[in-house]
């Protein structure tokens, strides 16, 4: 008798637990506003990334085409992957002195792991993390970027 009671108890418990599970999925089937899908390429216009999101390293320039990079190479040392290469040149200043200035700030996006160490190490806040994350390209070579604009100058007052 005890066997039979147990037997039917098992069946009852089984059916009950299965129906409880089905209630959850049934709830979501009937409540379509709970859907969490983000339709990515469609919501591009309204999609804003968080301001700290690390998408790529960029070098902001002001309206006079001036940047803040002094060419100290702190970021190059800080980078664990060697994705930053700074080529410097000697520039003749108006007062006749020669000063080290950057020629090209080469940034290999394909090597970068977005670890933020270069940005943290920069003493003059010349580079920041950009929010663009759509980096897919057909040619790998285009991932090698030069961050300073052509003919850009060092911002006055940054040393």
């Amino acid at each position: 008798m005890a066997f039979l009671v147990n037997y039917f108890k098992t069946i009852y418990k089984t059916l009950k637990s299965l129906l409880t599970g089905m209630k959850v999925t049934g709830y979501y089937f009937t409540h379509l506003r709970e859907i969490h899908t983000e339709e990515y390429p469609d919501n591009r216009a309204t999609l804003t990334m968080f301001d700290r999101f690390r998408g790529e390293v960029i070098m902001p320039h002001n309206t006079d085409n001036e940047h803040r990079c002094t060419g100290c190479q702190a970021c190059e040392i800080a980078c664990p992957n060697g994705s930053i290469k700074i080529i410097t040149k000697q520039e003749l200043l108006p007062d006749g002195k020669k000063k080290k200035r950057i020629d090209t700030f080469v940034y290999h996006l394909d090597l970068c792991t977005m670890c933020n160490l270069c940005v943290v190490s920069c003493p003059s806040d010349a580079i920041v993390m950009g929010q663009n994350f759509e980096h897919s390209v057909y040619d790998k070579k285009t991932l090698k970027k030069i961050l300073n604009n052509p003919d850009s100058k060092l911002m006055a007052g940054v040393e």
Partner: peptide, 18 residues
Amino acid sequence: EAIMAIMEETCGARLTQN
């Protein structure tokens, strides 16, 4: 996803925060 959003907002990355 909601937790990842916290990470993203504060740390800047979702998975490999460093």
